[in-house]
């Protein structure tokens, strides 16, 4: 039984960046986004790795005049309602908030990438400001857009990995969501969690891999938790060497292959703009994935494919056939 590699990419451009200061710090990455994206697609094509692009629904739009029909949250930690972030403009004037060209790039790729959702305007589901009505409105809007584009909406990545309203997902045809990375330090206070997370990445501890048999959430949904965030080279994280990032991913891939488990890597495409070293790290990881796949030790799937396989009893079948092979004739 081989391991499973999933790559998910939170495609949000500036939608996931809250507050003017953070926007300012990341602005250069957004400005070069249209240059980075074709390089990313080419790299995935080169190593024949299909990825899951969790796209913020608003990026599908060419232009808009706001979305007053959709109830929007007003987070306590933001000075203005979230609807203020919508530029009510078009892709030429506000390319950070619209991206039909990005969707076209994904669809034109040689690899059959999956386009999942990252909500319509990157709402943080678990925040107290987000009601169930708001959540439903977001998913309804995304479902409409996906249907209009002829794209099935089968996977979801929660903005900021804040998981909530899980029971609603199957109603929109979603079969997989990316759950929170399961690490021992997740139960600690938030700041300690952050500190340990950085330490984890800097030291390249073996990341979490997951037994596919344990990931079902009811009959129609699968939680595919994250294993590793491919850390950007911003702030103090720039001092963490590329080798630590790659070593950690290799450890995760080896463990997943050895145990027949899932290794789920993720990052934001704009993270690639923080340093050329990001592309270097990603290429090294993808090269290792391709090698292990050629050796028959790892399979590569999108989130939707992995969920289908799990829901169809794939892990159990594989385990049974592995046991049969082990038994002497």
């Amino acid at each position: 039984m081989s391991g499973l590699f999933i790559l998910s990419l939170d495609t949000e451009i500036a939608w996931g960046t809250y507050g003017a200061r953070k926007l300012s710090r990341t602005s250069h990455c957004f400005n070069v986004y249209r240059d980075l994206f074709p390089r990313l697609i080419a790299l995935l094509d080169q190593y024949e790795v299909p990825a899951t692009f969790a796209v913020v629904g608003h990026l599908f739009l060419e232009s808009c005049n706001g979305h007053d029909e959709i109830p929007q949250p007003h987070y306590r930690w933001m000075p203005a309602p979230d609807s203020y972030r919508d530029p009510r403009s078009d892709v030429t004037r506000a390319p950070w908030y619209y991206g039909p060209d990005i969707i076209a790039r994904i669809r034109a790729a040689r690899m059959p990438h999956e386009i999942g959702t990252h909500t319509f305007t990157h709402v943080i589901a678990a925040d107290p400001a987000v009601t169930s009505e708001m959540w439903d409105a977001q998913l309804q809007m995304c479902a409409r857009i996906h249907a209009r584009c002829g794209l099935p909406m089968r996977s979801l990545v929660y903005p900021q990995d804040k998981v909530a309203y899980v029971d609603r997902l199957p109603d929109y045809g979603i079969v997989a969501f990316r759950g929170v990375e399961r690490r021992w330090y997740r139960s600690l206070p938030r700041r300690l969690q952050k500190a340990f997370h950085v330490l984890d990445r800097a030291l390249g501890w073996t990341p979490a891999t997951y037994n596919p048999s344990d990931l079902r959430v009811g009959e129609r949904l699968v939680d595919l938790p994250a294993s590793q965030f491919l850390m950007a080279y911003d702030g103090f994280r720039r001092y963490i060497p590329t080798s630590a990032r790659v070593r950690q991913a290799r450890k995760g891939l080896e463990r997943a292959a050895r145990r027949g488990e899932i290794f789920h890597l993720w990052f934001h495409p704009f993270n690639l703009g923080t340093s050329e070293k990001m592309f270097d790290a990603l290429e090294q990881i993808l090269r290792r994935v391709a090698e292990m796949r050629a050796e028959g030790r790892i399979e590569v799937m999108t989130m939707g494919q992995a969920a289908d396989w799990i829901l169809a009893g794939g892990p159990e079948r594989d385990r049974a056939s592995a046991q049969t092979k082990r038994q002497p004739a």
């Binding site: 000075p79 530029p87 403009s89």
Partner: peptide, 29 residues
């Protein structure tokens, strides 16, 4: 964090939305 609600109160009724999309905006280093 402690000042955030007070700042929200001061800015209530004022337009603090980013000008992106409404005005020509350029971000430079």
């Amino acid at each position: 964090p402690r000042s955030r609600p007070r700042i929200s109160r001061l800015l209530a009724g004022h337009d603090t939305s980013a000008p992106d999309g409404r005005l020509p905006v350029l971000d430079v280093r």
